[in-house]
């Protein structure tokens, strides 16, 4: 239930952000878009932070807590395959993250919708006052509407969920061999940050090899890239905040990649957990 306290904090944050006006507010031409971007950026930043923190911390606690309370003994002494136990636990965390993100998304969409409507009216008033041409007004209205509730925005929130899915499965994998919750959380957070530099590091290393790289080395770097997920691929979140369109193909590829990472980590988690002794 404590998870939902965060949703209360999020709601307050959202309301505060919707009333917040930038210092340059309504002085430059694109100020309406900027206001909406600030609103989306605050909301999606909070959503991303919540989902990642929750995915790591909650997953890291799952097995140690069950073990400490001996609930694990009562569950595994039933005819429950260990894979089912792991998948069930992971699914529980992911369902909770998904429901929380849906609620936050709902709140963001409602506030964003009303804010966009308000700003569209402001733009129309501006057009009347300054005598804008019909084309110019159309252009402005379309620019403002693009920063409102769109499918692109939903794709960005989808990417936040995907990132949380990858981190939850990674934390689950670490917790199957880790001896403490703190270790799991620290390692997961380190991998999370490393994941944002994986691509840069790989490119830099591959280009610094003057004589070119052998096939084996390439395979090795690809293997390392598998262990450390490449979170730069999830940068569509920033684009969606700015209202840029995300092609469906990229979103689908991201979804497949997420399933692949989560699948690999879950299989590895099962591999270590299936013979673990309690």
């Amino acid at each position: 239930m404590k998870v939902f306290y965060f949703l209360g904090v999020f709601a307050v944050l959202m309301l505060a952000a919707s009333f917040f006006e930038m210092p340059w507010s309504r002085t430059t031409e694109d100020s309406a878009e900027q206001e909406l971007i600030v609103l989306k950026s605050t909301a999606m930043g909070a959503m991303a932070m919540f989902s990642i923190l929750f995915a790591i911390a909650a997953t890291a606690l799952l097995i140690p807590k069950d073990l400490e309370d001996r609930t694990l003994y009562t569950i595994l002494s039933k005819p429950v395959p260990r894979l089912d136990y792991l998948i069930g636990k992971l699914a529980g965390v992911l369902i909770l993250v998904t429901v929380s993100l849906l609620l936050m998304n709902g709140l963001l969409s409602i506030i964003l919708h009303f804010k966009t409507e308000e700003l569209l009216l402001v733009e129309m008033a501006k057009a009347e006052a300054h005598g804008w041409s019909a084309e110019h007004l159309e252009l402005r209205l379309s620019a403002v509407a693009q920063q409102g509730v769109t499918w692109t925005l939903q794709a960005g929130i989808g990417a936040i969920l995907f990132k949380a899915m990858v981190m939850a499965s990674l934390a689950l994998l670490i917790s199957t061999f880790s001896s403490s919750t703190l270790f799991t959380i620290v390692i997961a957070v380190v991998i999370y940050f490393m994941g944002h530099f994986t691509e840069d590091a790989r490119n830099y290393w591959l280009h610094s090899q003057s004589g070119g790289v052998s096939k084996e080395v390439k395979l090795m770097t690809q293997g390392i890239a598998l262990i450390f997920p490449d979170f730069q691929l999830y940068n569509i979140i920033d684009s969606t905040i700015e209202g840029k369109k995300v092609p469906q193909g990229i979103f689908t590829r991201l979804a497949i990649l997420t399933l692949f990472y989560s699948g690999i980590y879950s299989v590895l988690a099962w591999f270590t957990f299936r013979k673990k002794e309690f």
Binding site: D69, T71, Y73, S77, K78, P79, V80, P81
Partner: peptide, 15 residues
């Protein structure tokens, strides 16, 4: 796993 179909277990100080 199927051997546990026949077992009921109560651990010490369960929570």
């Amino acid at each position: 796993t199927d051997s546990r179909q026949e077992i009921g277990f109560l651990p010490e100080n369960p929570y």
